[in-house]
């Protein structure tokens, strides 16, 4: 992983600098989310610390995916979606009118549950977003291509067929390609929405090891159904629960503390498998 430069290299100046020292790199303040009239998240206050893996766990339908989609403003794409409260990134509100959402998403990458490589070559999957972000230099593109493919352990598997359609790769390879594609843009944060859920156990293990290794250079927020996975790889855990159809943050803290000494009875019941 020595090929990835330190975090500080990635900090661009497009987003207004922090006014005060934030508690976390990302922080939601009284964040509520509505789809039309239906409220799906209620007053979530969640700090996400830099350089750590934060796992978001909870039963289906408790708003986990909705929550991480607000962190890179992907919810902008959903008609009728409305949020109240604030999301701070390095202390600045990401919904402020001066924020360039394209730059924001470049700095906060996202990986989806189902691998979503574009239906063209492996090489173009990585180089085309680079070009669109103004990196026109072929040499730099090729360097980043090799670097990120090595970072995700895909280089030896695909180096001889970079021009092949990415959809011919296996599910696990596709997911690693998607992670490489996000890494190529040198983000600070990676949001992962159940990145292993659609993979077979072997691929899942490979991707999980990769995520653990990425922690060194990136801040990671991972939504997972798999409690064992959350326990294995995360530093902090946030537990969500659905009450009256609304997702609420029940408990958050260090993973060890949440799993071994949960403060809330619901958390304890969910983690021990009694509820959920």
């Amino acid at each position: 992983m020595s090929t990835v430069p330190p975090l500080t290299d990635f900090v661009s100046t497009k987003i207004a600098p922090a006014k005060k020292q934030p508690v976390g790199l990302i922080e939601t303040k009284n964040l509520s989310l509505f789809y039309g009239l239906k409220q799906v998240l209620q007053s979530v206050c969640l700090p996400i610390e830099a350089g750590k893996i934060t796992a978001i766990v909870g039963p289906s339908g408790c708003g986990k995916t909705s929550l991480i989609s607000t962190l890179n403003r992907l919810t902008d794409l959903i008609p009728d979606c409305r949020i109240s409260g604030r999301v701070l990134f390095e202390g600045s509100d990401i919904h402020a009118p001066e924020v360039d959402v394209i730059q924001l998403r470049r700095r906060i990458g996202m990986i989806f549950q189902n691998p979503a490589p574009f239906p063209f070559s492996i090489k173009k999957n990585i180089c085309f977003p680079l070009r669109e972000h103004g990196i026109k230099d072929r040499k730099e593109q090729t360097e980043r291509l090799e670097t990120v493919l090595r970072d995700v352990g895909l280089w030896d598997e695909v180096k001889d067929r970079l021009t092949q359609n990415a959809l011919t790769l296996s599910g696990g390879q596709q997911q690693r390609l998607c992670i490489a594609r996000a890494l190529a843009l040198k983000p600070q944060v990676l949001l992962m929405d159940e990145p292993c859920a659609a993979l077979d156990p072997l691929s899942s293990a490979v991707v999980e090891d990769l995520i653990a290794a990425l922690k060194e250079h990136y801040t990671i927020v991972i939504v997972t159904h798999n409690l064992a996975q959350a326990k294995r790889i995360s530093d902090a855990t946030a537990f969500f629960w659905s009450q009256n159809g609304m997702g609420r943050l029940i408990e958050q803290g260090g993973t060890k503390q949440v799993f071994e000494a949960p403060q809330n009875a619901l958390t304890a019941a969910y983690i021990s498998g009694v509820r959920g």
Binding site: L74, R105, A116, F118, C178, L185
Partner: peptide, 11 residues
Amino acid sequence: RDRLAAAALGL
């Protein structure tokens, strides 16, 4: 998913 993936890459 292609639209979402493209948006998430800041395209």
